[in-house]
Simulated assay, not measured.
Amino acid sequence: MQRSFSYIVLITWFLLAWSCKTQYVTTSLKKSNHEVVNAAVPLDSQLVSIYLPYKSVLEKDMSRVISVSEQEMVKDRPESSLTNFLADMMLKEGAEIAAGLNKDIRPDISFLNYGGIRTFLPRGEITVHNIFELMPFENEVVFIQLSGEQVQEFLNYVAENGGNSVGGIRFKISENKAANVEIGGKPLSEKELYWLVTNDYVAAGGDGFDVFTRRKEFVAGNVKIRDVIIAHLEKELDNGRQISAKPDGRIVYE
């Protein structure tokens, strides 16, 4: 998806270049209500001629179909079709990214902050534009290692907020804390170390996840989460598979 990024950079350059040109604006003042009216300033025709061909290419790329969904997927707490789909996708793709880094990392848990998921995925065709709406931020994949005690602290915060987008893990919310935690089908051990794949925003303590700043290790994935989602959906489409997900009891109230 480097093409889309390049087009956006080009358009940004165009807008900046135009905005930096000396502009002369004629204004008139209506004394009756003090309304200021700006006369239209024509765009530089040379810049427009450069920009327009790339605009059409960008629009074509953004409207490109990259997947088909069997259902509309929306986010909800404590879990939902969309939050589960994204978390499971992150766990799977995170393992492949880690392998490509030649690091001795196998993510046990995946996590995407609820606030970073900005909209829904529609039923039927999904385009590049849908994913830019879903993930408009430039967040990147990172891996952090936590102790079992820190994982419990992280999940207690998730429970306190009513749930979130997590993968590889199951637990119950009891009195605003995470209880009966299982990771990979095994009970959480506070003495074990676990790898979590997430985004750089929460790894830096964003959305109140301060526990992540006290991590044992940190490894950058060097890829944007949005690009990971797009690549995953394209693979599913190439293999003739539609996407779907549903709540599966990974987070329930006791």
Rank of each mutant, 00 (worst) to 15 (best):
residue 239 N to A: 12
residue 239 N to D: 12
residue 72 E to Y: 01
residue 177 K to D: 05
residue 10 L to P: 04
residue 85 F to A: 01
residue 63 S to M: 08
residue 91 L to C: 04
residue 130 N to F: 01
residue 100 G to I: 03
residue 42 P to T: 13
residue 140 E to S: 10
residue 164 N to H: 07
residue 149 E to A: 15
residue 157 Y to W: 00
residue 218 F to A: 09
residue 175 E to T: 14
residue 181 V to G: 12
residue 135 M to C: 11
residue 206 G to T: 08
residue 40 A to E: 10
residue 219 V to P: 06
residue 64 R to D: 04
residue 206 G to A: 14
residue 157 Y to S: 00
residue 247 P to Q: 01
residue 8 I to M: 08
residue 103 K to E: 10
residue 117 I to R: 05
residue 33 N to C: 06
residue 35 E to G: 05
residue 208 G to Y: 08
residue 152 Q to N: 15
residue 161 N to H: 15
residue 46 Q to G: 05
residue 242 Q to A: 14
residue 205 G to H: 10
residue 121 L to S: 07
residue 89 M to C: 02
residue 210 D to F: 06
residue 52 L to H: 10
residue 142 V to R: 09
residue 159 A to G: 06
residue 71 Q to C: 06
residue 29 L to Y: 07
residue 154 F to P: 02
residue 93 E to R: 08
residue 163 G to E: 05
residue 2 Q to L: 05
residue 169 I to N: 09
residue 28 S to H: 15
residue 116 G to C: 08
residue 90 M to Q: 15
residue 243 I to M: 06
residue 59 E to D: 13
residue 241 R to C: 00
residue 45 S to P: 08
residue 10 L to N: 13
residue 129 H to T: 10
residue 64 R to H: 07
residue 41 V to M: 08
residue 129 H to P: 03
residue 122 P to S: 02
residue 114 Y to I: 00
residue 93 E to F: 05
residue 119 T to M: 12
residue 137 F to L: 15
residue 13 W to N: 11
residue 182 E to N: 14
residue 51 Y to H: 10
residue 94 G to T: 00
residue 191 K to I: 01
residue 237 L to Q: 09
residue 65 V to T: 03
residue 43 L to W: 12
residue 232 H to C: 05
residue 2 Q to W: 02
residue 92 K to D: 04
residue 44 D to P: 06
residue 201 Y to I: 11
residue 74 V to K: 08
residue 229 I to Y: 06
residue 200 D to T: 01
residue 242 Q to S: 15
residue 77 R to L: 08
residue 190 E to R: 14
residue 32 S to A: 11
residue 72 E to N: 00
residue 39 A to K: 13
residue 155 L to D: 08
residue 99 A to Y: 07
residue 186 K to S: 09
residue 234 E to S: 07
residue 51 Y to N: 10
residue 97 I to M: 11
residue 76 D to L: 02
residue 1 M to I: 01
residue 107 P to Q: 10
residue 236 E to P: 03
residue 37 V to L: 15
residue 26 T to G: 08
residue 25 V to D: 08
residue 223 V to L: 13
residue 186 K to Q: 04
residue 138 E to Y: 12
residue 47 L to N: 04
residue 246 K to H: 04
residue 185 G to C: 15
residue 160 E to T: 07
residue 96 E to T: 02
residue 98 A to V: 04
residue 157 Y to F: 03
residue 151 V to Y: 06
residue 11 I to H: 15
residue 41 V to W: 03
residue 121 L to Q: 06
residue 69 S to T: 06
residue 226 R to G: 11
residue 214 R to I: 01
residue 208 G to S: 11
residue 86 L to F: 07
residue 133 E to A: 12
residue 169 I to D: 06
residue 242 Q to W: 07
residue 188 L to C: 12
residue 12 T to H: 15
residue 150 Q to E: 06
residue 171 F to N: 03
residue 129 H to G: 12
residue 199 N to R: 07
residue 71 Q to N: 10
residue 90 M to V: 04
residue 30 K to G: 14
residue 67 S to I: 00
residue 122 P to H: 02
residue 82 L to I: 00
residue 218 F to W: 11
residue 17 A to I: 13
residue 196 L to Y: 09
residue 223 V to K: 13
residue 30 K to H: 14
residue 95 A to T: 09
residue 125 E to V: 02
residue 242 Q to H: 15
residue 177 K to S: 14
residue 215 R to Q: 12
residue 185 G to I: 12
residue 254 E to M: 09
residue 47 L to R: 06
residue 141 V to S: 08
residue 219 V to E: 12
residue 210 D to C: 09
residue 38 N to Q: 11
residue 216 K to Q: 09
residue 71 Q to T: 04
